[in-house]
């Protein structure tokens, strides 16, 4: 008579979780501080979202303030300049997500083609220095370059391209272009670091195989390097889409003039002046929540699109 042992009773859910926690205790220990940080600084402030639904005035207990529902959300969508503000935000973000985003990728690819390591390092170092220049200094540099007696005007006049100086910073038609060029200059080196790192991670044997198959330099970039760094590019792009409505406000406030207001006023500048500076915190919070929700939806959608089109996704 064969002796059969009864199968072990399946572990309960709690036991299973505890077992897993025990097994992974070293990982949990490592990430404990980060989790606490996230809990305190990322989830704790979520409470503040409630302020957008109340007529909150600093100093009063939130629960003593009148509940106004979606009043401040409606106010945002009914702003007299809403269309203009949204258009400017989308255009500036669009330029950042396309031209400014892709420039570091191209720069990294070009840098990778340099063989003289000293020159390569020098170029790379110089390229990311502007990232550390504060926006105030950048604004000052742009003023010096683009004022009526600035370097650019003097050069153009000396070359005979123009007869009288152009007030570049007062030209609404030029604002987006100047901003885009400035953003590229400021961020190209720094943003390229991650792509250079990704390129370094591409398997060297692929290049050898490519060479055997007769790929030239351009072919290797096109068929090996770009596909190799594509997951990184896609990841950063998807995350960037989440920031579509976050254009920042420093550049606009420092270099914008009344003449360029129609093209520089974005959600962030508006909220800064009409929310924070005027002490209308519920309004500022409401707009922040709207931006976050839209950003979240955009991340999900772009992730889905990416998964469908390229097969790559972050979730």
């Amino acid at each position: 008579m064969s002796k059969t042992s009864a199968p072990a009773a399946p572990k309960t859910g709690h036991a299973r979780i505890l077992g897993r926690l025990k097994r992974e205790r070293s990982l949990w220990a490592i990430s404990a501080v980060a989790l606490v940080w996230v809990a305190i600084f990322c989830y704790g402030p979520l409470y503040g979202l409630l302020y957008s639904f109340f007529d909150y005035r600093p100093g009063l207990n939130l629960w003593d303030c009148e509940f106004v529902g979606l009043k401040y959300f409606q106010e945002f969508f009914l702003l007299p300049d809403f269309t203009k503000i949204l258009r400017n935000t989308l255009v500036i973000s669009g330029l950042n997500l396309t031209i400014v985003f892709i420039a570091p990728v191209i720069f990294a690819l070009l840098l990778n083609e340099l063989h003289h390591s000293g020159f390569k390092r020098t170029v790379q170092t110089i390229s990311y220095l502007p990232y550390f220049v504060s926006m105030v200094v950048v604004a000052s540099i742009m003023n010096t370059l683009l004022s009526s007696n600035g370097t650019i005007n003097e050069l153009l006049m000396a070359l005979g391209f123009i007869e009288s100086p152009i007030a570049f910073l007062n030209e609404p038609d030029l604002f987006w272009g100047i901003m885009t060029v400035t953003n590229i200059w400021k961020g190209i080196g720094w943003s390229a670091i991650i792509y250079i790192s990704a390129i370094t991670g591409v398997d060297g044997e692929l290049y050898q195989a490519g060479a055997v198959d007769g790929l030239g330099r351009f072919g290797m970039v096109w068929h090996i390097t770009i596909p190799g760094i594509l997951p990184t590019v896609v990841l950063l792009f998807i995350l960037g889409v989440g920031n579509l409505l976050n254009t920042g406000y420093e550049y606009q406030l420092l270099l914008g003039t009344p003449m360029t207001r129609d093209v520089y006023e974005v959600i962030d500048t508006y909220v800064y002046r009409y929310g924070v500076q005027m002490g209308r915190y519920p309004f500022a919070t409401a707009v922040g929540l709207i931006k976050s929700v839209i950003g979240f939806i955009l991340v999900i959608l772009s992730n889905l699109a990416s998964r469908k089109v390229t097969g790559m996704s972050i979730m």
């Binding site: 809990a39 989830y43 704790g44 100093g59 009063l60």
Partner: peptide, 24 residues
């Protein structure tokens, strides 16, 4: 839990009794 905690933790200390006086 985190949301509830933040709700409870942050709802106090906003003036309390001192803030309730009078017309706003």
């Amino acid at each position: 839990g985190a949301l509830t905690f933040s709700l409870v933790a942050c709802s106090g200390g906003e003036g309390g009794e001192e803030s309730t006086g009078g017309d706003t």
